[in-house]
């Protein structure tokens, strides 16, 4: 199944900048970006290899497609692409309710959800959430999020930043908040397909106050218990992905996005090891190793 990440957030939060950043750092990953309309998505020109009416081909095998009003049909086209895609990113419109996009994936057996990532403008998000017309829509986007990229943190004071973080946490208690400027985050934060790949560029984990480590189980583990523990807020993880061997010898794939986790069967040839992306100040290798 092809993983699908929904990237949302209100107008001006930095979605387009994030998409360009990810395309620039795709590093061989075949990424498709679905946007409501091209006009809104100004793809950096140096990335464009070719363009026709609905599809822009990006250097390195990525594509960008506009879906207008028919996301289902566009996803159908993506599922049929050859060579197959590694990951799909849907940039939802400023008024879209991201969870309804994720809900509709249930009808597309070729895809699975890789979570909802919402960009929030540190300067304006609270004001947007109070807007007479858009307030409830903005709030709904925040409560739908698995991961919030709190953007433009350089433009606000520490006091404002702390207050905004606290406010976001009230709206969505278990959400993982990653601070950034100019939508620059390690690509792993947004797309789990990057996890475990050799990194060549992109934003530094350090800059985003993040770390990555690999848990190597010493024997069989209860995959469900482990996944639940990794998704617990206290563990300090943003995402995790990897394989373990269950008590009965079968392999399992663990995928964690913020507070949500999924455990599925995996083929026997997979090597054990779970890569964890987490907050440097919270995630503790020692504490995690106790789990395996």
């Amino acid at each position: 199944m092809i993983p699908v990440t929904v990237v949302g957030g209100y107008l001006g939060a930095g979605k387009t900048t994030l998409v360009n950043h990810l395309l620039r750092n795709a590093n061989g990953l075949r990424l498709a970006v679905l946007v409501n309309e091209f006009g809104e998505l100004a793809i950096d020109e140096d990335l464009i290899e070719a363009q026709d009416e609905d599809v822009i081909s990006i250097a390195g095998g990525c594509v960008c497609c506009s879906f207008g009003s028919d996301l289902t049909a566009a996803l159908g086209d993506m599922a049929a692409m050859d060579p197959p895609l590694d990951h799909v990113l849907i940039e939802s419109s400023g008024v879209a309710i991201p969870s309804s996009i994720v809900n509709s994936l249930v009808f597309m057996p070729a895809f699975r959800s890789d979570g909802i990532v919402i960009l929030a403008d540190a300067e304006t998000v609270q004001k947007s959430a109070r807007d007479k017309y858009m307030g409830d829509t903005v709030t709904r986007q925040i409560t739908d999020a698995d991961i919030i990229l709190l953007n433009k943190v350089d433009l606000v004071s520490k006091v404002t930043l702390d207050a905004t973080r606290a406010w976001l946490q009230v709206q969505n208690r278990a959400v993982r908040i990653v601070e950034c400027t100019q939508s620059t985050v390690p690509p792993e934060t947004v797309l789990d397909s990057f996890i475990g790949r050799v990194r060549t560029g992109g934003a530094h984990l350090e800059a985003a106050h993040l770390d990555m480590l690999t848990l190597m189980p010493t024997g069989a583990v209860d995959a469900d218990d482990l996944a639940a523990a990794l998704a617990d807020e206290g563990a300090g993880l943003v995402r995790a992905k990897g394989f373990v061997t269950r008590g009965d010898g079968r392999k399992a794939l663990i995928q964690v996005v913020g507070r949500r986790f999924e455990v599925t069967d995996a083929s026997d040839d997979k090597a054990d090891g779970v890569v964890c992306l987490g907050f440097r100040d919270v995630m503790s290798k020692a504490a995690l190793e106790v789990l395996v």
Partner: peptide
Amino acid sequence: GINHPGMPLGADGIPTGELYGPDTMTPV
């Protein structure tokens, strides 16, 4: 096992065949 607000399920856990909104109407 289908969990979607636009697709009510019958007592058997299978969709009743009533589809609400473009998300569910389009694919069927």
